[in-house]
């Protein structure tokens, strides 16, 4: 029996996750709201998760799916830390626009 992966091919998954990853990259580069930047980072990480799962099925190997668990846990920890930083910034300047963070340069 043909699996769905054999029917549409592994490349399609690769293109989709590369596309999602690029959306994340551009979101991070272009948007100035800290929360949106966080969401962009999450999209980048989840794009990789999608790819790992696709490859895991492609190779008939469970290691890739286990890795996804690690990467999800890491992403959650990262966001927890990031939100804490945002809260600290909001308390200090009353805004989460990253353009207002311009004290360090030279």
């Amino acid at each position: 029996m043909e699996t769905i992966l054999q029917e549409i091919g592994i490349e399609t998954y690769l293109y989709l996750s590369a596309l999602l990853f690029c959306i994340g990259v551009f979101g991070l580069l272009l948007r100035r709201n800290a929360i949106v930047m966080f969401m962009s980072i999450e999209i980048m990480l989840n794009a990789v998760n999608l790819m790992l799962v696709a490859f895991s099925t492609f190779h008939q190997d469970a290691a890739g799916q286990v890795f996804v668990f690690f990467s999800m846990a890491v992403a959650a920890a990262e966001v927890a830390v990031g939100l804490a930083v945002i809260v600290a910034i909001f308390r200090n300047i009353g805004s989460i626009d990253v353009d207002q963070l311009k004290n360090l340069k030279g």
Partner: peptide, 17 residues
């Protein structure tokens, strides 16, 4: 310190991704 944390966080998670 906030600004340093934010900058490092954004750059670091980008590199990690």
């Amino acid at each position: 310190s906030n600004e340093a944390g934010m900058k490092y966080f954004i750059m670091g998670s980008f590199a990690s991704a």
